[in-house]
């Protein structure tokens, strides 16, 4: 194959490209690095050094002045372990059930012809641009009437039917599930529920896992809904619990940065483990469709 024009850039332009990428990359990472350093410094070292405290150790850093006491304080003296458990519980339940709800709903709307299909579809998809804030007050009212305020269920139930998720799964069903397969399974005498779980879901598996991760992260990061719905501190997820540290320990930035690190680390790890599927699943609908 002959070299294509533009494939090899001159040395200067390549240096420029890598230079720009490294500069922007550092600007992106700098807040994370700073946070990591802040979380292992003592309260006293927080303002006297930008990253790690200077000293006579290796690389000019006072390694012996670093501490993990903030993390110990978070987990021993403060209810951060409980909040993390709450976050894991809420994000897992919500993302798994919401993914199933959206996949089933998308399947029902995409693969069956029935009366009312158009009405249901446009009613749901029409609300995609409705600002979530508009629903805050009236949903709180609804939860109040149902007696669900300050219950996990009051947080979980409203997150189970996101219009955007239904839209994505309906698209996925239309684009990648051939009707012949369903028809063939029916002829073979396969039940409707089994067709969905054993034939349809495996086909859209990349979409399933991408949406699962997206919703997990979305629920994990949600602040306003748990702030309104969950009122007892023992039910707080990490977002609310870590933020409320600012009230009591506002002057202890090291503790607050340690708390923030603890709250974002699980999501970062999850993403690092699943990033390949995640990014391709994320962009597949938008780019092809």
């Amino acid at each position: 194959m002959s070299p294509r024009p533009g494939d090899r850039a001159s040395l200067t332009s390549r240096l420029l490209i890598y230079g720009l990428l490294v500069v922007f990359g550092l600007m992106t990472l700098l807040p994370f690095i700073w946070m990591l350093c802040a979380s292992i410094k003592t309260k006293g070292d927080f303002y006297t050094s930008q990253f790690l405290p200077p000293g006579h150790g290796f690389l000019g850093v006072a390694w012996d002045r670093l501490t993990l006491s903030q993390f110990a304080q978070l987990f021993r003296d403060l209810p951060v372990a409980r909040a993390m458990l709450n976050s894991v519980f809420l994000a897992s339940v919500c993302s798994v059930v919401a993914t199933l709800c959206c996949a089933a709903g998308g399947y029902g709307l995409a693969k069956f012809r029935f009366r009312g299909r158009e009405t249901v579809t446009s009613a749901i998809l029409g609300t995609v641009v409705v600002p979530t804030a508009l629903l805050l007050g009236p949903s709180f009212e609804t939860l109040f009437h149902l007696g669900l305020v300050d219950h996990y269920a009051g947080f979980i139930l409203p997150t189970l039917a996101p219009a955007f998720g239904l839209y994505l799964f309906r698209q996925a069903m239309v684009n990648s599930v051939p009707p012949d397969i369903i028809e063939a399974a029916r002829i073979d005498g396969c039940g409707e529920i089994r067709i969905f779980f054993q034939i349809v879901l495996p086909i859209i598996r990349p979409m399933l896992s991408a949406f699962l991760v997206i919703s997990f992260i979305g629920i994990w990061n949600n602040f306003i809904t748990p702030q309104i719905v969950l009122q007892s501190p023992e039910r707080y997820p990490l977002s609310v619990a870590i933020f409320s540290l600012r009230g009591l320990y506002g002057d202890d930035n090291s503790l607050i940065m340690a708390g923030t690190l603890v709250a974002i680390a699980p999501v970062m790890l999850l993403f690092l483990l699943l990033q390949r599927e995640f990014i391709s699943g994320l962009t597949s609908g938008a780019v092809k469709g």
Binding site: G108, K111, F112, F114, T127, T142, P158, A163, E192
Partner: peptide, 24 residues
């Protein structure tokens, strides 16, 4: 059959999105 698949979504969506929207 299609209603079995869309019912969970529709019931929750109706209660926690459509109803609050009308109420608002």
């Amino acid at each position: 059959v299609p209603w079995v698949f869309i019912a969970p979504f529709v019931v929750i969506f109706g209660t926690f999105a459509v109803w609050p929207l009308l109420r608002s």
